[in-house]
Computed example of a mutant assay.
Amino acid sequence: MAIVRQRFWIFHARGVIRKITGSCLQCFRCHSKLNNQIVGDLPSSRVTVARPFTVTGVDFCGPITTTYLLRGYRTTKSYIAVFICFATKAVHMEVVSDLTAKAFLASLKRFVARRDLCLKLFCDNATNFVGTRKELEEMKCKFFDQQVQGKISKYCTANSIEFHHIPPRSPHFGGLWEAAVKSAKYHLARILGQSHLTFEELATVVAEVEAVLNSRPLTTLSNDPNDESVLTPAHFLTGGPLVRTVEPTVDSEEWSHKDRWLRISAIQQHFWRRWSAEYLHELQQKVKWTKKQKNLNEGDMVLIAEENLPSKQWLIGRVLKVTRDAKGWVRVADVKTKNGEVCRAIHKLASIPSEC
């Protein structure tokens, strides 16, 4: 514009130049802007009263170096499977020896043995999770192919674990368990430091970290000393926080079996009422993606963002299919590229203007 104005004065020259540079594909690739959309509503499993771990998310953290107390043995890598309840944010942690599907299936069996069957299990698209899903489906098909009738078949059919995978490379779809993994790493990093534990010692440390995570407040602490104790995930698991201060001994009262059962039921209902009154309203706050944006449509040309590549090397693709939520907003798209079809969240796509 400075060079042109040496000889000519063009009205609204800045807008004309921006229009020209905006229709340049090379300029757009250097300054591409990724799509976004107004944040969606919370799933019903986050705001519905249910038994802890009825709907569960899972993710891995690690590796953590473990050792054997024997001469000549090298150190090995261990991992931690973090299960989190959607409703109460209760955490269950299992130490895993490797990232194979069999190791995760074994940790899932231990989780079910301690916390009961979950109806839905959400996870990302890691290869060990995909392998476990396929293995469970094969086992389920072999079981139901047999001539098994009666209550056992009906019970297994009604209680089969339903797997749900989030879109690839979209961690914000699993923010609940990603936050749990971050909290677990926070405590493990300060406990372990540079030390190498045995597998048994690591399992002990993980159990203690799990107790700490389940004793975290779900709501903001009150400054009034007359208020009730803060609500924690452990209230829904054991009736109280797992990590507590030393308290004086209180003489137990004699309760009949009927009165005791009514007392337990009343305590449980009291926790859920506090959960509804104190915790649910805090989930309605939206801190980003607060404005509605134009939906991505089939046939649009997009750039596929890759974290380890500069924007000029991002692949160009055409949208083949879009996935909408209950309100009609596009959240996920299937894109065709020169290397095949990929599935990505819209936050990993940059729409190319039609002028380019």
Score class of each variant (00 low, 15 high):
Arg169Val: 05
Arg169Cys: 05
Gly175Asp: 03
Leu119Trp: 05
Ser183Trp: 01
Leu121Phe: 05
Cys123Lys: 04
Arg190Phe: 10
Pro171Ile: 00
Ala180Arg: 03
Phe144Arg: 04
Ala180Ile: 07
Leu136Lys: 02
His165Ala: 06
Ser160Met: 14
Gly193Ala: 10
Cys141Glu: 12
Glu178Cys: 05
Asn159Pro: 04
Pro171Met: 01
Gly193Cys: 10
Lys140Asn: 03
Leu119Thr: 14
Lys154Val: 00
Pro167Leu: 03
Pro167Asn: 04
Thr127Pro: 03
Asp124Asn: 11
Gln149Asn: 13
Ala113Tyr: 08
Ile166Arg: 10
Ala113Pro: 05
Cys156Ser: 08
Ala180Asp: 04
Phe143Gly: 00
Asp145Ser: 15
Asn125Leu: 08
Lys185Ala: 06
His172Pro: 08
Leu192Met: 14
Tyr155Asp: 07
Ile152Leu: 14
Ala126Lys: 04
Gln146Gly: 15
Phe144Ala: 02
Phe173Met: 06
His164Arg: 12
Lys151Trp: 09
Gly150Tyr: 09
His165Gln: 09
Arg133Val: 11
Lys185Tyr: 08
Ser183Arg: 09
Lys182His: 14
Phe173Gly: 00
His187Phe: 09
Thr157Trp: 07
Leu176Ser: 12
Glu162Thr: 15
Cys141Lys: 13
Pro168Tyr: 04
Asp145Tyr: 11
Phe129Ala: 05
Lys182Trp: 10
Met139Val: 10
Asn125Ser: 13
His164Leu: 15
Tyr186Arg: 14
Gly174Ser: 08
Asn128Lys: 03
Val148Ser: 08
Leu117Gly: 00
Arg190Gln: 13
Lys134Tyr: 06
Pro168Cys: 06
Ala126Cys: 12
Arg169Pro: 00
Pro168Asp: 06
Asp145Cys: 13
Lys142Trp: 12
Glu135Val: 02
Tyr155Arg: 03
Phe144Asn: 01
His172Trp: 14
Leu192Val: 15
Gly131Trp: 07
Val130Phe: 02
Ser153Gln: 11
Glu162Pro: 03
Asp116Thr: 15
Asn125Lys: 12
